[in-house]
């Protein structure tokens, strides 16, 4: 199980509270995790990454084990701590604007 922390607005849209836990098929990468989020919560389609380009939206960030993974390639394997469920994959809205 992969643990995922969503920002408040996306938790509201998805109708969840706290962390969510997701099964990820195959290698655990950013792309696979976002695929799993969108599969479990279709309402989040287009909110984390662009529907057409599939690129991360510019004011969304991915934090992993205390590091910013936003600019890592989408298919880079995530650390074992995330794969084993010891650390969450954090989706966060960037500090920008008011």
């Amino acid at each position: 199980m992969i643990r995922v922390v969503l920002p408040a607005h996306l938790k509201t849209l998805a109708g969840v509270s706290g962390e969510v836990q997701l099964d990820v098929v195959g290698p655990v990468t950013q792309r696979a995790v976002i695929d799993a989020i969108e599969c479990a919560y279709p309402v989040l389609g287009g909110t984390i990454r662009d529907r057409v380009t599939m690129e991360r939206r510019k004011f969304v960030r991915f934090f992993v084990c205390g590091e910013d993974w936003s600019h890592e390639p989408a298919d880079t394997p995530l650390p074992d701590a995330v794969v084993l469920g010891n650390e969450p994959f954090v989706v966060i809205g960037a500090m920008a604007g008011g």
Binding site: V43, G46, T47, V60
Partner: peptide, 24 residues
């Protein structure tokens, strides 16, 4: 939202409750 993009919401009860519909 500048962060999370576009959604379309729909109400069928005059705005009391809402549900997201398509945003593609």
């Amino acid at each position: 939202s500048g962060w999370f993009g576009q959604l379309i919401q729909r109400s069928d009860d005059g705005g009391a409750t809402w549900n997201p519909v398509g945003n593609d």
